[in-house]
C-alpha cells in the first residue's frame, strides 16, 4: 500500500522538484539572487522615494488635495525657478569642464613623476576628494570670510581691497564652483591617471619616432586612447555635480537672495524650511529628466565600448 502511494506520488513530486531545482540553478536565477540585496536597497531607497515624491508633487501645500500639475505651473511663473535652472546648469557644466581640464593636466604631471615618488603625490592629491565635503567646505567658508579670512588678508597686504566673496552673487557663484572643482578634480585626476597608465608606452615611442612632439603625443595618442574614460567620467561627474547639495548649502545656503541656489538646495529650502513639501518635491523632480539623459548617454557609451573591445 505504502509502495503504491509512493509510486503514485513519485512522478509528479520528482517532476516538480526537478523543475524548481532547474529554475534555481539557472544562471540568470543565481545572478538575480546575488543582485537581490542591491535590488532591495534600490527599491526601498530610490524607487519608492522617487514615486513618493512624484505623488507629493501633485498635492497642495497642506498635502490634503490633489492639484495635478498645479505646482509645476506655479514654478514656471516664478523668476527664482528659472534662475535656479540657469544657475544649476551653469554650475554643473562649468565645474565639470574645469575639473576635467585640471584632472587631465594634473594626471599628466603625476604620470611623469618617477614611480618612486608617485604614490606620495597621488595620495596627497586625493586628499580634497577624501575629506567629507561638509567639513572641507567649512574650511573654505572661513577662507571666504570677508573680514578675517586668509584671502582678503593677502589681498589687503597687496594693497588691494578685500572682496565680499560670498556676499556678491558673481563671486559667490565663482566661489561655489571653485570649491566644487577643488573637491572633484582629484577624482578626474585618478581616473585619467588610470587611463593614462593603460596607454602602452610603445605607442609614445612609436609616435616619438614618427615625429610627434609632446603636444602631438597627447593630442593624437593619449586623448583618443582615453576618450571613453574621459566621456564616462565627465558624464558621471555631471550627474553628481548637478545634484550637489552640501557645498552650496554650507557656503551660501543659496544666498545672496537665492542667487546661488541649485535644484537640491532650493528644493530643500522650499520643502523643509518653507514647509511646502509638495513644491520642494516638484523642484527636485526637475533634476530627473536632465539626469536621465546623462545616465542614458553613459550607458550608451559603455555599450559602445563593449563593442569596440
Amino acid at each position: 500500500m505504502a509502495d503504491a502511494v509512493a509510486r503514485d506520488l513519485r512522478i509528479p513530486v520528482v517532476r516538480r522538484r526537478v523543475g524548481a531545482r532547474a529554475l534555481v540553478s539557472r544562471k540568470s536565477m543565481i545572478a538575480f539572487f546575488f543582485a537581490l540585496p542591491l535590488i532591495l536597497i534600490v527599491l526601498c531607497l530610490v524607487v519608492y522615494p522617487a514615486f513618493y515624491s512624484m505623488h507629493l508633487a501633485t498635492l497642495n501645500k497642506s498635502m490634503t488635495k490633489f492639484v495635478g500639475f498645479g505646482n509645476f505651473e506655479f514654478l514656471f511663473k516664478r523668476n527664482t525657478f528659472w534662475m535656479v535652472v540657469e544657475q544649476s546648469v551653469l554650475f554643473a557644466v562649468t565645474a565639470v569642464i574645469f575639473k576635467a581640464v585640471i584632472g587631465f593636466v594634473v594626471a599628466h604631471f603625476v604620470h611623469n613623476i618617477p614611480l618612486k615618488g608617485q604614490r606620495k603625490w597621488r595620495g596627497m592629491l586625493l586628499i580634497p576628494w577624501v575629506i567629507p565635503p561638509a567639513m572641507s567646505t567649512l574650511a573654505w567658508l572661513w577662507l571666504f570670510d570677508p573680514s578675517y579670512s586668509a584671502f582678503n588678508w593677502i589681498l589687503n597686504h597687496l594693497g588691494l581691497a578685500g572682496i565680499p566673496w560670498l556676499g556678491n552673487p558673481y563671486w559667490a557663484r565663482a566661489g561655489i564652483i571653485l570649491v566644487n572643482v577643488w573637491v572633484g578634480s582629484p577624482f578626474f585626476m585618478i581616473m585619467y591617471l588610470a587611463a593614462l597608465k593603460s596607454v602602452p608606452e610603445q605607442l609614445h615611442e612609436a609616435a616619438a619616432i614618427d615625429g610627434a612632439n609632446w603636444f602631438q603625443k597627447i593630442w593624437y595618442v593619449n586623448l583618443p586612447m582615453m576618450r571613453n574614460i574621459i566621456q564616462i567620467t565627465a558624464l558621471f561627474s555631471l550627474i553628481v555635480t548637478f545634484a550637489n547639495f552640501d557645498i552650496v548649502k554650507i557656503l551660501t545656503n543659496g544666498g545672496p537672495v537665492d542667487q546661488t541656489h541649485v535644484f537640491a538646495t532650493w528644493a530643500f529650502t522650499l520643502g523643509i524650511w518653507g514647509n511646502d513639501i509638495p513644491l520642494g518635491a516638484s523642484v527636485s523632480l526637475f533634476m530627473f529628466p536632465i539626469l536621465a539623459v546623462a545616465a542614458g548617454l553613459i550607458l550608451r557609451n559603455i555599450r559602445n565600448r563593449g563593442n569596440e573591445a
Binding site: 615611442e205 612609436a206 612632439n213
Partner: peptide, 21 residues
C-alpha cells in the same frame, strides 16, 4: 638628436600600432 630627427623607422615587438587609427 631626438628620435624624430634621426630619420629612422622602427618596428616594435608588439607592433605598437595606434588602435584608434
Amino acid at each position: 638628436v631626438p628620435p624624430k630627427d634621426r630619420d629612422i623607422a622602427m618596428v616594435f615587438q608588439n607592433y605598437a600600432l595606434y588602435p584608434h587609427m
